[in-house]
Design a protein around this nucleic acid. Structure first.
Lengths: 262, 262
DNA sequence: CACGCCAACTCGTATAGACGAGTTGCTGAG
DNA sequence: CTCAGCAACTCGTCTATACGAGTTGGCGTG
């Protein structure tokens, strides 16, 4: 166990009324912010920090758990605690579902990923009929049953997004939309072929901490929130024809919108 | 110390390889999800949980810290641990800065808050000249200096949002925009009077965990992420005339966008 | 009755120790 | 040289204890 380089982490001010474990977290945070520990770098081990600061191990662990909940570091059993690398960010343009961008053949996700040099994958695709929750039901105009299309998206093997599309069953039953692969242009192209010309989308954006389920499905590190995007598609008659509920790893996405000033 | 109502929380499966503190967190989470503890309700105290589950206090605290980092509960020193109430959510419509909505006199924030029956407040308003960060500089077309307008927004005394507007200094110097109160219609009205007719906005939306500073400024409970919204305003010449960097408590906001399908 | 104070509760901080489990690299046997 | 296995490191889990500090309600004194 080598001694820590002096001066890198400083010492505890025992006269301060700030809790010791917070002070240690502060020092480590400073050091990370100032680049003394770079992305992916290993922090000093718990026992090194115990020795350096002269405190007990639980106190050090307490400090580290603060940084973890801030999303600054992540620990790996048997290896150490590392400065969390910022993963490449996927930018979602607000017009990604516009008709003019609808590729014949590949999905928007696939096209964008390949353009960015990543390997896209779609996973655990499930299509089935369901009774809608009251929220979904309200958004779709109170259908008794809906078709639910679930899928998970991965980039280079890493899950980044989980989405469920809901469509009124009377509209989707016995159409290509009820097939696992709805064909070129996706379900929006099929909807338009069925006479539902799309008029506009409503998108609602929320952020929150993930449920344990979402942590598992998206393999989220602790301290990473999710963005929840609920998109409702309306046809030119004003009917809501689809609701898509998407949960995204917040550290993998930036949503970009362009809005007129009128 | 009364015994806990039997059956409410179940017991630990000591044969399971799931850690005891995770199991306890699971039981409590279930109980909250199923409404056995309602919003604002007090969970059993740490010592009650210690007795009920037959574990040490640190194990119980560990469990509770999980729920806290999930944003499910928050603890109050001397009082107990409570199911976190969902605060009223403010809905931000994507057209809230459109010209047609520009009220003469009151800001969009004030109008909306009063319509929702809340008491709006604007706080720590600071206007000054600064050298821009490279990010802001790039968005504004590399001005050497900018005018920065900082302010904090509160609803019923609760801080919900912190925003900084940056404008190229050559554009804003010696105009009402450099005044603490820019007058009716806000800085967008002043920009248009100065000949910069607004054409469109770009908005970028991110979510992340807050910095310690942001926790303080927005009085955030632990386990609450922030939404960061960076809006750039462009005039009809295509010049970026303002960048507004807003950080919002994620549990107080839903962003709503309406997008054309073309 | 009014009020101050204290007891008993709450969570917050910190220590010291033990054992378990994953990872890594070295060492020694083959 | 190869490779199994061990030693030494990492973090994960859990116990037991102690004291501090904020909150609440009741009791007793004035």
């Amino acid at each position: 166990m080598a001694a820590l380089p002096s001066g890198v982490l400083g010492v505890i001010d025992s006269t301060s009324d700030r809790a010791v474990f917070r002070q240690i977290a502060d020092r480590l945070r400073e050091a990370i912010d100032k680049g003394r520990f770079k992305e992916g770098a290993k922090l000093p081990s718990e026992s090194e920090l115990v020795e350096h600061f002269g405190v007990s191990r639980m106190t050090v662990r307490n400090s580290l758990s603060i940084l973890q909940s801030e999303g600054l570091v992540s620990s790996e059993h048997g290896k150490g605690v590392f400065v969390r690398p910022r993963p490449p960010v996927r930018r979602l343009a607000s017009d990604r579902f516009a008709r003019r961008h609808r590729e014949q053949g590949k999905s928007a996700f696939t096209v964008e990923a390949e353009a960015a040099g990543s390997r896209p994958e779609v996973d655990s695709l499930k299509v089935r009929e369901e009774r809608p929750t009251s929220d979904i039901s309200a958004r779709l105009g109170q259908p008794r049953k809906v078709l639910a299309r679930r899928r998970r998206y991965l980039l280079d093997g890493r899950p980044v997004e989980f989405a469920v599309s809901y469509l009124p069953l009377d509209l989707a039953r016995d159409t290509p939309i009820a097939e696992p692969n709805p064909g070129p242009g996706g379900i929006y192209a099929r909807l338009e072929e069925l006479g539902h010309r799309l008029d506009h989308f409503d998108e609602e954006v929320r952020a929150r901490m993930p449920s344990p389920d979402e942590v598992k499905t998206l393999r989220l590190a602790s301290g990473v929130p999710v963005i929840q995007l609920v998109r409702t598609a309306y046809d030119t008659e004003g009917r809501a024809v689809e609701v898509c509920d998407t949960v995204m790893s917040a550290d993998a996405y930036v949503l970009a919108y362009q809005l007129p000033a009128n």
